[in-house]
């Protein structure tokens, strides 16, 4: 298979480096312009692209009607719509602590969904 060289913008950190990735099929041969995390990102992006996902779930008994939640690690990109559909059905109750697990091993990915903040019980 022919070697391919292409530009990939790294989304690992806010720097947003433009990586020059040379690959042979799904094997990355060389990454220019990136740090160690950039190289890992380039390889991961080719075989199994993943993204951090942040959304919200319904909340009962808190200051607000929603609780912000996030994935502990990057989540498989093609399955994000499935994850969002699932989160839409969830409702939880206060009190909630920061980083509390809202869903464990979501969609059998081994990834947990955590609360992005604490939410105390609001009475009255």
């Amino acid at each position: 298979m022919a070697k391919l060289s292409e530009n990939v913008i790294c989304v690992t950190c806010p720097k947003g480096c433009t990586l020059i990735v040379t690959r042979d099929g799904e094997t990355v041969i060389d990454v220019e312009n990136g740090c160690k995390r950039g190289k890992d990102y380039a390889q991961q992006e080719l075989i199994d692209p993943r993204r951090m996902v942040a959304s919200s779930v319904r909340l009962k008994g808190g200051l607000h009607p929603l609780l912000p939640v996030y994935t502990s690690v990057p989540f498989p990109k093609p399955r994000i719509p499935e994850l969002l559909a699932l989160l839409r059905k969830i409702e939880i109750s206060t009190p909630v602590t920061l980083d509390q697990i809202v869903l464990e091993n979501v969609l059998d990915t081994g990834i947990n969904i955590h609360a992005s903040r604490e939410m105390k019980v609001v009475t009255g």
Partner: peptide, 21 residues
């Protein structure tokens, strides 16, 4: 509520509310 906060201060990729908390 999106991620991307704290990469410099905590070396972690946090959502905004977590960073504030």
């Amino acid at each position: 509520i999106h991620n991307g906060f704290g990469v410099e201060v905590f070396k972690q990729d946090l959502p905004g509310p977590s960073y504030a908390q």
